[in-house]
């Protein structure tokens, strides 16, 4: 079968999502900070939806312990997550504009690296890093939309994971309390629920639907 052209793929998305929403999605640029269980799944959902520009950022390599929930394959072990995930994203959405930065985000580089995008997803795993990114974005980049995740460990009920609009441009997904440091492992199904909340919050923002 012939490989689909850019126009064919766009038309297929338009048919599913409607022309108006697809135009907004294709013009959107979203950063995904951290490419673990949340970030790899968020990025794939956004690529499938036809988000035009995805900026993926992580400093880490694919480890065997990631495979229970993160969107990597055994043959990708040892690769940088930015390289492994961009390979997968290109297979899913060959015409998506993917920007990758293999870098650890800090207070200093966040305002520089994230300045081109409109919407930022926080998808780190460590609580102090989540807080650092959220504070840094809200303090120094108030014009950005920010979608963060906190609390998705274990196999607790699905329906305790919610999306809350904390501030005009800050959304927080998760149950707010299930902490991986309390000994609860991360399980694919529940991490995916949180990632899906984050991805859907991003798509709603792109669509101009700001309520939760």
């Amino acid at each position: 079968m012939k490989f689909p052209t850019r126009e064919e793929m766009y038309r297929a998305l338009e048919e599913r999502h409607g022309a108006e929403l697809q135009k907004k999605l294709s013009e959107a640029s979203v950063a995904v900070c951290g490419l673990g269980g949340l970030g790899s799944n968020i990025a794939i959902a956004l690529a499938r939806a036809g988000v035009g520009t995805l900026h993926i950022l992580d400093f880490d390599k694919v480890d065997i312990s990631n495979l229970n929930r993160q969107q990597y394959f055994p043959e990708q072990l040892g690769m940088y997550k930015t390289d492994a995930l961009s390979d997968t994203l290109r297979r899913i959405a060959p015409y998506c504009n993917i920007r990758k930065d293999c870098v650890k985000l800090t207070e200093e580089n966040i305002p520089v690296l994230l300045s081109p995008v409109n919407i930022i997803c926080e998808a780190f795993d460590k609580a102090d890093q989540k807080a650092m990114l959220v504070n840094c974005v809200l303090e120094s980049m108030p014009e950005k939309y920010l979608v963060a995740g906190s609390g998705m460990a274990g196999i607790g009920p699905s329906n305790t994971i919610t999306t809350r609009r904390m501030m005009k441009r800050f959304y927080l997904c998760g149950d707010g309390s299930s902490d991986v440091d309390d000994g609860m492992g991360l399980v694919a199904s529940r991490v995916l629920i949180c990632a899906a909340h984050q991805a859907n919050a991003v798509i709603r923002i792109i669509a101009g639907e700001y309520d939760v």
Binding site: K130, S177, M184, L186
Partner: peptide, 10 residues
């Protein structure tokens, strides 16, 4: 006041 307490996992 809203104090958002982040927990680990992602």
């Amino acid at each position: 006041v809203e104090v958002v307490r982040f927990v680990g996992g992602g």
